[in-house]
């Protein structure tokens, strides 16, 4: 491969990597806020995204509702669904047994239920395309070609992340969430309602997944299996140290760019391996993740 072509590939890879990476970053963010506050890796995150995508598709295409209505209804449904799962199911699971493994199994159960439900509705049996709400005309940035849709995706993802970080850093609710993440017992002592905060966090995580779904769906063929995109979100979270929110965002962009570069320089089939290789590399080179702090000593 000559240098000219390599440079072109590099630019294109970085550009498209930033676009898909922004969606992985959102997904990683959604995974990490749940993990940070309840130590549960949510294996249903991908299916929450998939289900939200189909809700949007149904409203937008089959009900022909206007875009603003479809989008806001989808987000509301995702928030409510995730919050409900936490409130009704996980509360009971925790009550029945203290083991965190059981909570993880319940999220695996949810992922299968959602997948099965979407297949049952009949929408999930054939691949469908999600209408692009922004034009897909391409324009050149440097030597990289991106579409207006790509720019809209990146822009929206960044706005959502900024809003989230503002909420998390500067509002009363965000403070409560941070305190639950750091020390649940102390948070409870100062009057934080743990159950309520956990429910809101799950809802928020569902809503962020829904936004990620709205952003990524136009770029994929929608199937009931599209939730497998979550592997990339997990990879992003691991790269970021799994308990760091800024880490999750940076991890998302890194994974996005690496994935696109692997696709261009190696082969498009090797893309499937990219998240696994990224996870393994991080585990080998820097097991605490790029943004993981020092190991916290358990008080005994």
């Amino acid at each position: 491969m000559d240098l000219q072509l390599a440079l072109l590939f590099l630019q294109q890879g970085v550009a498209s990597g930033l676009v898909v990476g922004s969606v992985y970053a959102l997904l990683a963010l959604a995974i990490v806020i749940i993990f940070k506050t309840s130590e549960v890796p949510n294996f249903a995150q991908g299916e929450m995204l998939m289900a939200a995508g189909y809700v949007a598709l149904y409203l937008l295409v089959f009900r022909a509702l206007p875009a603003w209505a479809s989008i806001s209804m989808t987000i509301v449904v995702a928030f409510a669904g995730a919050a409900l799962f936490r409130r009704v199911v996980l509360t009971q699971v925790a009550h029945a047994s203290g083991s965190p493994v059981n909570l993880v199994i319940a999220t695996l159960g949810l992922s299968y239920v959602l997948k099965g439900l979407v297949r049952q509705t009949g929408f999930g049996d054939t691949p469908r395309s999600f209408p692009a709400l922004v034009s897909t005309d391409s324009l050149m940035i440097g030597q990289a070609s991106v579409t207006r849709l790509d720019l809209a995706i990146l822009g929206t993802a960044i706005i959502v992340m900024a809003a989230f970080f503002w909420m998390f850093g500067y509002t009363k609710l965000g403070r409560a969430m941070r305190s639950v993440g750091m020390n649940p017992k102390a948070a409870q002592l100062v009057g934080v309602n743990l159950n309520r905060i956990h429910t809101i966090i799950w809802g928020l995580s569902g809503a962020i997944s829904a936004i990620a779904a709205l952003l990524i769906s136009p770029k994929l063929l929608m199937t009931a299996d599209m939730g497998s995109v979550v592997t990339l979100g997990f990879a992003a979270a691991i790269v970021g140290g799994f308990a760091s929110l800024p880490g999750a965002v940076v991890g998302g962009f890194i994974i996005g760019i690496v994935e696109q570069l692997v696709g261009l320089f190696v082969s498009s089939r090797a893309i499937t391996l990219a998240p696994f290789l990224a996870i393994m590399l991080v585990l080998i080179l820097r097991p605490q993740g790029l943004f993981g702090g020092r190991v916290v000593i358990k008080k005994v």
Partner: peptide, 12 residues
């Protein structure tokens, strides 16, 4: 077509 829902529900 019911397999996934049933496995999932059983787990939950």
């Amino acid at each position: 077509s019911y397999q996934e829902i049933i496995y999932g529900l059983i787990l939950i």
